[in-house]
């Protein structure tokens, strides 16, 4: 296969960056997209040019490290597929392929296609956990969980934190990520005590990171490599509303002089 690539090149955070074009003629259909990128980099290295920096690690679709907008779509044209599991047979011989990094002010480009996604870690730090210490715990079967609830929680927890939702959203919103994380814990009995505080603090962190607002396009869901449902966004909205309007601000308030 012959392909023509247009790749975003940017040497550092402060560099303005530009698209650069390359041609590859030794691509085969069985190659994964990242193997095609390896081939390009091998070629550039041998030619004495700088290879394209891109994030990748497990190459089996779970680590969430790979992050490329391919022909305008996060992780490329195939739905429910990460870039590393995309194969060249999904492209035509002679195809022109545009490769760009995730675009969001909360995900600054570090170099070429590598972006800084630490904003996601900080959203988790704001409350994406069940407060806990390591040590003896009650037997799990002492708190039965309805299997459907456990499965829905797992649906949400399947999120690999790649950031495709942000990249795909025309508003650069991180609601799908945040809501999946909040819903995973909010659905389970272990996550109940902190459920409403969690909703408030994760949303507030998400806002301060500079992500845009959700306008219910559902583009995130369509481009999510794990197919996370926007139903979780509705869930977070509802939890956030309850937390803001209904839940007591200070649960100890009852003992204050009324």
């Amino acid at each position: 296969m012959r392909i023509k690539l247009h790749v975003w090149r940017q040497s550092s955070r402060s560099d303005k960056g530009h698209m650069e074009s390359y041609e590859l003629d030794n691509v085969v259909e069985e190659m994964s997209f990242l193997e095609m990128m390896d081939t390009l980099n091998e070629k550039l290295t041998v030619e004495g040019k700088e290879p394209v920096a891109f994030d990748h690690d497990c190459r089996e679709g779970v680590c969430g490290m790979c992050s490329m907008v391919i022909n305008g779509e996060a992780h490329g044209p195939k739905s429910k597929t990460t870039t590393c599991q995309l194969y060249m047979r999904h492209f035509d011989d002679g195809a022109e392929i545009f490769i760009e990094p995730w675009r969001a002010s909360a995900f600054p480009v570090v170099r070429d296609l590598v972006v800084d996604r630490s904003a996601f870690d900080r959203i988790i730090q704001a409350g994406g956990y069940v407060s806990n210490h390591s040590g003896p715990k009650p037997d799990p079967n002492s708190i039965p969980i309805e299997p459907n609830i456990a499965e829905t929680a797992l649906d949400a927890a399947t999120c690999i934190g790649c950031g495709a939702c942000v990249a795909a959203c025309p508003n650069g919103s991180a609601m799908l990520f945040t809501s999946a994380k909040a819903s995973h814990l909010g659905l389970l009995p272990q996550g109940q005590p902190e459920r409403f505080d969690r909703a408030k603090s994760m949303v507030s962190q998400m806002e301060s990171e500079g992500f845009g607002s959700c306008r219910n396009y559902a583009e995130c869901e369509a481009q999510c490599p794990k197919g996370i449902s926007i139903a979780f966004i509705g869930r977070l909205n509802s939890d956030f509303l309850k937390a803001s309007l209904v839940e007591p601000i200070d649960r100890r308030g009852d003992m204050k002089a009324q």
Partner: peptide, 18 residues
């Protein structure tokens, strides 16, 4: 806010669902 959230737009952009 949304405009600030994506200061650099994509060269190519395609929608799957919106």
């Amino acid at each position: 806010l949304s405009a600030e959230a994506r200061p650099v737009s994509y060269v190519k952009s395609k929608k799957k669902a919106a």
